[in-house]
């Protein structure tokens, strides 16, 4: 009898786990392995996550042209890339916004912004809005830090002071990369920040 309860319990748990992983709302959590994806960049070439991964991992960031908080971080993203690309963690930027809701975030405008700012990293367009929901991204800018095994190790803010880079106390992404490189776990693994809600296509 005990065994039966045990097995039916196990069965229930596994069914529950299976159904949960199939739910559309289930996004990657820290510790999950991220699936590869491929999107078009501002140079009109398709770039995949696996193509672009560094030896250490990748700084994936959902960002856009129009959000003031995203703009505040453009120079810091460039700096992160310049510091960490050669240490195995390049930046990969993805614009998730629907340009019908936000015309300044269209592909042509992305090209223009990338040229103006001389982005040293690829700037991809999630035109069909299929990538950002897998990550559970809700705002721009929002970082997803992956390690060499494509495991999600940190999500959230770039640092703790959007408005003033000089006053940053906690450089979350930088510290998380350094933790990974030293064989430690980033702490914290998740932070929140103010950002612009991602503009989702209206059905």
């Amino acid at each position: 009898m005990k065994k039966m309860i045990y097995f039916s319990g196990l069965f229930l748990v596994s069914v529950l786990a299976m159904s949960m992983s199939l739910l559309p709302g289930t996004a990657y959590q820290v510790g999950d392995v991220v699936a590869d994806f491929e999107l078009k960049g501002v140079d009109d070439k398709m770039i995949s996550l696996s193509d672009y991964m560094g030896d250490g991992g990748l700084i994936l960031v959902f960002t856009c042209n129009t959000c003031p908080y995203a703009q505040l971080y453009e120079d810091r993203l460039i700096e992160l890339h310049q510091t960490f690309a050669e240490r195995g963690f390049p930046v990969l930027a993805v614009n998730p916004n629907d340009p019908i809701s936000k015309p300044g975030d269209g592909f042509a405008q992305m090209k223009q912004r990338a040229t103006e700012k001389e982005f040293p990293f690829p700037y991809l367009f999630d035109a069909d809005q299929i990538v950002f929901p897998k990550f559970g991204a809700t705002r721009t800018p929002e970082v997803f830090l992956l390690d060499a095994n494509r495991v999600l190790r940190y999500t959230g803010a770039i640092d703790d002071n959007p408005k003033d880079a000089a006053s940053v106390q906690k450089a979350y992404v930088r510290e998380a990369i350094e933790a990974i490189q030293n064989g430690n776990s980033p702490e914290p693994t998740k932070t929140k920040a103010i950002g612009c809600g991602i503009k989702v296509k209206k059905a």
Binding site: P162, P188, T191, K192, A193, G195, G197, I198
Partner: peptide
């Protein structure tokens, strides 16, 4: 914002 977003509400991601 990381220190106060959860104090407004734990469900808030920070998006406006």
């Amino acid at each position: 914002a990381n220190t106060w977003i959860d104090l407004v509400h734990p469900d808030w991601t920070g998006a406006l």
